[in-house]
Amino acid sequence: MDSLVVLVLCLSCLLLLSLWRQSSGRGKLPPGPTPLPVIGNILQIGIKDISKSLTNLSKVYGPVFTLYFGLKPIVVLHGYEAVKEALIDLGEEFSGRGIFPLAERANRGFGIVFSNGKKWKEIRRFSLMTLRNFGMGKRSIEDRVQEEARCLVEELRKTKASPCDPTFILGCAPCNVICSIIFHKRFDYKDQQFLNLMEKLNENIKILSSPWIQICNNFSPIIDYFPGTHNKLLKNVAFMKSYILEKVKEHQESMDMNNPQDFIDCFLMKMEKEKHNQPSEFTIESLENTAVDLFGAGTETTSTTLRYALLLLLKHPEVTAKVQEEIERVIGRNRSPCMQDRSHMPYTDAVVHEVQRYIDLLPTSLPHAVTCDIKFRNYLIPKGTTILISLTSVLHDNKEFPNPEMFDPHHFLDEGGNFKKSKYFMPFSAGKRICVGEALAGMELFLFLTSILQNFNLKSLVDPKNLDTTPVVNGFASVPPFYQLCFIPV
């Protein structure tokens, strides 16, 4: 009986604490739906499609509103004006990374994606500088992407125009580009180590996009005490870190300090320079996690976009025909596509942009946080508050993009057929937390897609009208449904 009384008292205290925290903070924060004790607004949000729920709530509470995930307040920004004001106009104040408990377990605050403060700034600055020195957006990395595009075309030829699921092959190409940047090595598509790495990356994007992960991140005790797919994700990350550590040891034994070959060499050189400046942010643990982040951000996002792009091109054969006509006119058949071609191919450029806009790969991006107490639109948001960005509300804005739910390359073309930029184009987020590999991803999408369409016609196994382009999961990332196609050599 005594234990029951204690339990009831504990629960009562928890409920009172929950109510007090919510009521004391709500006077400062933007308005929002009334949260339930302990669980907050979790029942009012469709976990399978958070973005749709945010759109519905914005119609009631406006472009800036507050939700509670458990006891934790989260300020939501919906629509271009609110997102721009926060991420661009007040970029420094909104540059923090929001709480992501599962990532905390995986990387302990290291790396480039989930770190904060001085650690994040130094690692991000170093990573950007190193990638630029190796030619991100310049010639040397373009050579690597072109080489991988040629290998991709050869792998597709091996399908002999038979029906195939493109998931694996389209994942190999961007993964190999990242391998060449980090390890100075590309792998054969049949290499077992490479296959294991690909498998872990593919599993992780599916797990991260599941409703279960949303629950884990908002009720963090689940991570330590409950079984579930989150444990598989943590094991996959541990596998990748151990693999990278092996490569780091190989580099330490063979590195030429006067001739760095890749990202690992550059990081080890930085560690050597910083060894007298303790404590340094440049450690082996930081290198492991930064490399894992580059793999995660640079492989599955690009391969998922490529997979979605081919599905949309199957669905819209008239678009595919126009792209192939432009390829034939500008590039021809006797040389590989290059980035200089893009400025002469406005329709193809528009298609690449429209694919990214339409699929809305990361509907709410990753959570941000404010780095200080900030007054925002007459609300006071306390330091450390998590900020949720609705990228969907920007990419699918119906004023900027008429009929935003329709796939239409003319969203990025003017009346004369010239490519038209849009400030609403934010597939990689915006501001200080914009994806480090934005330029690389854009290069890969253009070169891989043009190389495929230069060499193959795409054949659907069903009537294009019957192809479903609805994402199968739409949590962290929008993942396309399973499909097969035939690559018919031109």
Results as ranks from 00 to 15, higher is better:
3 S>Y: 11
5 V>A: 14
6 V>G: 07
7 L>S: 12
10 C>T: 15
11 L>K: 01
14 L>E: 00
19 L>G: 05
21 R>E: 03
28 K>F: 14
32 G>P: 01
32 G>T: 02
34 T>L: 09
36 L>Y: 15
37 P>G: 04
39 I>H: 01
40 G>S: 02
41 N>P: 01
43 L>A: 10
44 Q>R: 08
48 K>T: 15
49 D>K: 06
49 D>G: 11
52 K>G: 12
52 K>Y: 08
55 T>P: 08
58 S>C: 06
59 K>V: 08
59 K>T: 15
61 Y>V: 00
62 G>W: 00
65 F>Y: 14
69 F>M: 14
69 F>V: 13
69 F>E: 05
71 L>V: 13
72 K>F: 04
72 K>N: 07
72 K>Q: 09
74 I>P: 00
77 L>Y: 03
87 L>N: 08
87 L>Y: 13
88 I>A: 09
91 G>L: 04
91 G>V: 04
91 G>H: 12
92 E>Q: 07
94 F>L: 07
94 F>S: 05
96 G>V: 10
102 L>V: 11
106 A>P: 08
108 R>V: 10
109 G>P: 12
113 V>P: 09
116 N>K: 15
118 K>S: 11
119 K>I: 07
120 W>A: 07
126 F>R: 03
127 S>L: 14
131 L>A: 03
132 R>E: 08
133 N>L: 11
133 N>M: 12
134 F>T: 15
134 F>D: 15
137 G>Y: 08
138 K>E: 09
140 S>K: 07
140 S>T: 10
142 E>L: 02
143 D>G: 09
143 D>M: 12
145 V>K: 00
145 V>P: 00
146 Q>K: 14
146 Q>G: 08
149 A>K: 00
149 A>G: 05
149 A>T: 04
150 R>H: 07
150 R>Y: 05
150 R>P: 01
152 L>R: 00
154 E>S: 09
157 R>K: 15
157 R>P: 01
160 K>R: 09
160 K>Q: 11
161 A>F: 05
162 S>L: 11
162 S>R: 15
163 P>A: 15
165 D>L: 00
170 L>R: 00
171 G>L: 12
172 C>E: 03
173 A>R: 00
176 N>Q: 02
177 V>M: 03
181 I>P: 00
187 F>E: 02
187 F>W: 08
188 D>R: 05
188 D>V: 05
189 Y>M: 04
190 K>N: 15
191 D>W: 00
192 Q>T: 15
193 Q>D: 09
194 F>A: 05
195 L>I: 15
196 N>K: 15
199 E>W: 07
202 N>D: 14
203 E>R: 03
204 N>S: 11
205 I>C: 15
205 I>M: 15
207 I>G: 04
209 S>L: 08
211 P>W: 07
213 I>R: 11
216 C>R: 07
216 C>L: 15
219 F>T: 05
222 I>H: 05
222 I>F: 09
222 I>L: 14
226 F>V: 12
230 H>T: 09
230 H>G: 08
231 N>H: 12
234 L>A: 14
235 K>S: 12
235 K>F: 06
239 F>G: 11
242 S>V: 04
244 I>T: 04
246 E>V: 04
247 K>H: 10
248 V>M: 07
250 E>W: 04
250 E>A: 07
251 H>L: 03
252 Q>R: 13
252 Q>Y: 15
254 S>N: 12
254 S>A: 13
255 M>G: 13
260 P>N: 08
261 Q>I: 09
261 Q>L: 14
263 F>G: 04
263 F>M: 10
274 E>N: 14
274 E>A: 14
277 N>R: 15
278 Q>E: 14
278 Q>M: 07
280 S>L: 08
282 F>C: 07
282 F>N: 04
283 T>Y: 05
284 I>D: 10
288 E>H: 06
289 N>P: 04
290 T>P: 02
295 F>V: 11
299 T>A: 15
305 T>E: 06
307 R>S: 05
308 Y>F: 14
309 A>P: 00
309 A>D: 00
312 L>R: 00
313 L>D: 01
314 L>E: 01
315 K>F: 00
315 K>L: 01
315 K>V: 03
321 A>Y: 11
323 V>R: 00
326 E>C: 00
327 I>C: 05
328 E>C: 14
329 R>W: 07
332 G>D: 05
338 C>A: 07
338 C>K: 14
339 M>K: 04
342 R>C: 06
343 S>I: 14
344 H>Y: 07
345 M>P: 01
345 M>G: 00
346 P>S: 07
347 Y>Q: 03
350 A>L: 00
350 A>T: 00
351 V>S: 02
352 V>H: 00
357 R>Q: 00
357 R>L: 01
362 L>K: 10
363 P>M: 04
363 P>G: 08
363 P>K: 03
364 T>K: 04
365 S>P: 03
368 H>L: 05
368 H>T: 14
368 H>R: 11
370 V>E: 02
372 C>Y: 12
374 I>M: 12
377 R>K: 15
377 R>T: 02
377 R>Q: 07
385 T>S: 06
386 T>Y: 14
386 T>E: 08
387 I>A: 05
391 L>S: 14
401 F>A: 03
402 P>S: 11
404 P>F: 05
404 P>L: 03
409 P>E: 04
410 H>T: 15
411 H>G: 01
412 F>T: 00
412 F>S: 01
414 D>H: 06
414 D>S: 10
414 D>E: 07
417 G>T: 04
418 N>A: 13
419 F>Q: 02
419 F>A: 02
419 F>G: 02
420 K>E: 06
421 K>L: 15
423 K>T: 13
424 Y>N: 11
424 Y>R: 09
429 S>R: 04
431 G>Q: 05
432 K>R: 15
433 R>A: 05
438 E>S: 11
444 E>I: 03
445 L>E: 02
447 L>C: 09
447 L>T: 05
449 L>A: 02
450 T>N: 05
453 L>N: 02
453 L>Y: 02
454 Q>H: 04
457 N>G: 09
462 V>N: 07
463 D>P: 13
467 L>T: 05
468 D>E: 08
472 V>S: 09
476 F>S: 08
478 S>G: 08
479 V>A: 13
479 V>G: 12
482 F>A: 14
482 F>T: 14
486 C>G: 03
487 F>P: 00
488 I>L: 13
